[in-house]
Design a protein around this nucleic acid. Structure first.
Lengths: 227, 227
DNA sequence: ATTTCTAATCTTGCATACAATCCATATATG
DNA sequence: CATATATGGATTGTATGCAAGATTAGAAAT
């Protein structure tokens, strides 16, 4: 495999692990030295990560780890909630024994971690549980989208899990989600997943956007993509 | 702006316009000559388009315009349906006069094109209508995701529109969608948008996947991302 | 002390050169 | 005749060099 691919993965991992924090500069020369390669493959890796939205590459001004505004962050979580809902809906419709078993196994692992109060372990097992749901949608394209967004949000998700110490609550929500999927109740599965991801974020999101049903409010729909 | 950015846009446009068809090779030397630049910015543009899923860059084997399998294509349309549903749901909840007016204008343009039987014009206006809905979700991140997927599917969507000559039917569905959004009926808006995008694709998708509710069927959930 | 202008330095963007791998054609062999 | 193998050509992957824009530090002026 090419160096650029490996580098892309390495840089992505470093960002996810929190080694590079949001706002940190990712200058090509330093990274090139660190990985013992020239700037070229570094550049290619950074541009790809930028295209995936993982980092922010500003023309002539270098790359930084994205610093989403609070509004943007809520938008990302809201989108995640919608995508996970969709996965849950399809999973409820199409569940196979294989996928059921995979979700069950992941859920049991979460249970163990939660009982032990191991936040870090729960974080990892939680990820597996959600990924099992993505796969259970039997739509690999949708699952890939879900994976990608999940990764982009991982830094903030971890904070959320820790801050609220909501391990046990999270676990119970997982149980409810599993139940709905197994019952084939698409609507319920979607709703529970949506709420699980967004928690109370939905109302908060509406609040941040300065909205109440039927009200007017300009707030231009800004777009960030550099064109 | 950098050359690579312009090139990326140019190549993307050429793919959307159908100048490069699915399966066509995009070799760096030819593109470099065509645009009068060196291979470097071409390479960067191709890698970015690859990261966005627009084209397929295979290590050491060059880039080609993606050729999704029928299964993959249905998955993409199904995902589009879910994302558009989400946009419609949020639009119904948060509709502002500005967004309402934008949708109305786009709808009128579609009406004119449909009455004139101008398939090409309808294609363009249809795009504007859907983009107006994305924006009406008041979630710019979700809207960006929707834009991106819409672009990736544009080639196939055009075929679909032409082949079925369903201009007038499409227009009526648009009217129904608008009505539901204006009524603030989230559920109805979501359902109508879903059906509009997928038409009868949902059942077909289930069929292709070899599924019926409760049945088992292995069919490993393959992943395409190069790691 | 604060602000503004200028210049030196640093970083990115692109071109070119070279190395490594892949592909196709042709040749050899069973 | 079919299959396997080798060799030459073509294409991608990486390194290096140079040019252009951006950032920072310092000096001058208010």
């Amino acid at each position: 495999m090419s160096q650029a691919s490996r580098l892309k993965q390495s840089i992505e991992d470093a960002v996810i692990a929190g080694e590079f924090q949001p706002g940190d500069r990712l200058d090509e020369a330093s990274l090139a030295e660190r990985f013992g390669v020239s700037r070229t493959p570094i550049r290619e890796a950074l541009l790809q990560l930028g295209a995936e939205g993982f980092i922010d590459v500003r023309p002539r001004r270098g790359a930084i780890v994205s610093v989403p505004s609070p509004t943007r962050l809520f938008e990302m979580f809201e989108t995640m909630a919608e995508i996970e809902s969709a996965c849950g809906r399809l999973a409820a419709r199409r569940l196979t024994p294989d996928n059921d078993a995979a979700m069950e196994a992941a859920h049991r692992a979460c249970e163990t971690a939660a009982r032990a109060g191991d936040s870090e372990q729960y974080y990892a097992d939680n990820r597996n549980f959600h990924e099992a749901i993505y796969r259970a949608s039997r739509n690999s394209f949708l699952a890939d989208q879900a994976f990608a967004l999940h990764k982009r949000l991982s830094a903030y998700r971890r904070i959320q899990l820790r801050a609220r110490n909501r391990l046990l609550q999270s676990l119970q929500e997982h149980a409810g989600i599993l139940e709905a999927i197994r019952a084939g109740d698409e609507q319920l599965a979607a709703t529970r997943l949506h709420d699980h991801v967004l928690v109370q974020g939905e109302r908060f999101s509406d609040m941040v956007l300065g909205l109440s049903p039927g009200s007017q409010s300009p707030a231009e729909s800004r777009r960030e993509t550099a064109k």
